[in-house]
């Protein structure tokens, strides 16, 4: 089975965030980046399916030059090839224009299945995979917690998370797009051998022309929303911070919970 996996590179959750000069995003200088958490689970699921079916995983990512590092990491984990959409025309989009570009890159070669994470940890639209499915005209499922392929590779039984601790079970015809929820599997670590092999693996960089796409429909110019500004939440109504070393703070907290909040 030939599987496309779309990954996004996002700021490390531990990173200290600062506003960028134009106030529309964060300052990316000196920021460390990682593969988006749920995309990592999607990649692991794809690698396991490829191993079971003697298949192949091709990893796609849209983003600036730094994204090459995320693709290299996916190759070290076992993906066969990478496709990097890095032309400036692809960048700065919303999920519609981003999904459109990724779908075109996926459509330019045949796949049986597309896996991606359910939501990015930075902008968190939770939509790009569904847009890819819409562009390809394939069925999709979002927030997938279980993937069970039939033996002929024609259908996939999907467990999808719902609110309140319930799951929906359904069958999708292949090819399909599955948007994976974090926690589906146990992502592997890269081996030294994998890291060495990754250096020889191909990362192609098709441009808009190669994919037959008009630049007005891509990236920032193809987006239907624009970001006016980003900001930290207003401080003030937050917690009363209790100072002191651990022991002092703990005693002081207990006293407040007893006398002020009266919940102990």
């Amino acid at each position: 089975m030939k599987i496309a996996v779309c990954i996004k590179q996002v700021p490390d959750a531990e990173a200290r965030l600062r506003l960028s000069g134009d106030g529309k995003w964060i300052d990316e200088e000196d920021l460390s980046f990682v593969i988006n958490e749920s995309d990592g689970y999607a990649l692991e699921e794809a690698l396991q399916i490829a191993e079971r079916t003697s298949g192949e995983v091709v990893v796609f990512s849209l983003g600036p030059e730094r994204v090459r590092e995320a693709l290299r990491k996916a190759l070290a984990l076992g993906a066969a090839r990478g496709v990097h959409l890095k032309d400036p025309a692809f960048l700065g989009g919303d999920s519609l224009s981003t999904g459109r570009a990724l779908a075109a890159a996926i459509a330019s070669e045949g796949f049986d299945l597309v896996l991606t994470g359910s939501q990015s940890d930075d902008v968190g639209f939770g939509s790009t995979g569904s847009v890819i499915a819409g562009e390809l005209g394939w069925p999709h499922a979002w927030l997938v917690m279980g993937v069970d392929l039939d033996e002929e590779g024609r259908k996939v039984k999907v467990t999808r998370e719902m609110e309140g601790g319930m799951n929906e079970l359904s069958n999708l015809d292949l090819p399909a797009v599955l948007e994976i929820q974090a926690g589906l599997n146990k992502p592997r670590y890269a081996s030294l051998k994998g890291i060495m092999q990754a250096k020889k693996k191909e990362i192609s960089e098709p441009g808009p022309g190669d994919l037959g796409l008009a630049v007005e429909r891509l990236g920032e110019s193809g987006a239907k929303i624009e970001v006016l500004s980003v900001a930290f939440p207003e401080a003030g109504k937050g917690a009363q911070i209790i100072e002191g070393d651990a022991e002092t703070a703990a005693r002081s907290l207990v006293e407040k919970l007893q006398k002020e909040a009266r919940v102990l």
Binding site: D94, S95, L96, G99, G124, F125, G126, S127, T128, S130, V131, A133, G134, E135, H140, A141, W142, L143, R160, E161, M162, E163, K224, I225
Partner: peptide
């Protein structure tokens, strides 16, 4: 912004070519 909405809303936006503001 329920899980059901997020499951289908991007496809609706894609098919209408409409602006999508999630969450």
């Amino acid at each position: 912004h329920t899980y059901q909405t997020v499951d289908y809303l991007p496809r609706l936006a894609q098919s209408l070519d409409a602006a999508l503001v999630p969450e």
